[in-house]
């Protein structure tokens, strides 16, 4: 497990090793920590738009002693076989899950990029590592897709603590090329309906799009 301060220190350390400016997007537990909704996380989930940026990042974390590890034991077989699976690097308690362009089958769209709510710049030497934090709405989508028990609990916590715009969530799911995103989201919304008010029109919109 890694706390927010340790995570920031780690990013700052990485920024001292990179050989070029990098922009990446934080989601999952990392994003929840930045929003102040979580104290610690098992893994640092990061997405890169460009593969070259990821290579620069990997070179820097290799210098810091992070070693590549297998996905088995962390993700299920379906995800291990997914073409958009992450690369995992580990050192002690800290683990990076690095994705490029897509998170499993969910596409990281331009709209998702524009909705990023926080920007953290880490500059220790010559280059800057910019970590953008994705919006709460997009976190709900991604957590619906990953669909682990902890993810559902995280969605519940997000809805309790913050206002979410369901129209953004539904529109984004429909925009996704992968139809499973809609089905996963609909399933999550059906479960959430017992504890939270979600207007019927959003269910109708999802049903029509399938």
């Amino acid at each position: 497990m890694i706390g927010k301060q340790e995570q920031d220190e780690l990013f700052e350390l990485v920024s001292s090793k990179i050989e070029g400016d990098i922009v990446c997007y934080a989601f999952g537990g990392t994003a929840l920590m930045y929003y102040g909704y979580k104290e610690s996380t098992k893994d640092i989930d990061i997405l890169f738009e460009r593969e070259d940026d990821m290579k620069v990042f990997i070179k820097a974390i290799n210098e810091l002693g992070f070693k590549k590890r297998a996905l088995a034991g962390v993700y299920d077989q379906d995800r291990i076989e997914n073409k958009d699976k992450p690369l995992m690097f580990e050192r002690g308690d800290a683990r990076f899950d690095l994705f490029v362009k897509n998170i499993f089958s969910t596409e990281f769209t331009e709209e998702m990029k524009d909705r990023s709510r926080e920007r953290h710049d880490f500059t220790r030497k010559d280059y800057t590592l910019t970590v953008m934090v994705i919006s709460i709405e997009d976190l709900v989508i991604l957590k619906s897709v990953t669909n682990r028990e902890n993810d559902y609990a995280d969605i519940q916590m997000l809805l309790k603590k913050s206002e979410v715009d369901w129209s953004i969530i539904v529109d984004e799911a429909i925009r996704q090329k992968d139809r499973w995103t809609i089905l996963d989201l609909e399933e999550t919304m059906q479960r959430l309906k017992k504890d939270f008010y979600i207007p019927k029109k959003y269910f109708d919109k999802l049903h029509k799009s399938i």
Partner: peptide, 14 residues
């Protein structure tokens, strides 16, 4: 319009 936090070197010029 978004939260911006700078860690490390960041000054008026940046």
């Amino acid at each position: 319009s978004f939260k911006h936090v700078a860690h490390g070197k960041y000054g008026i010029e940046n």
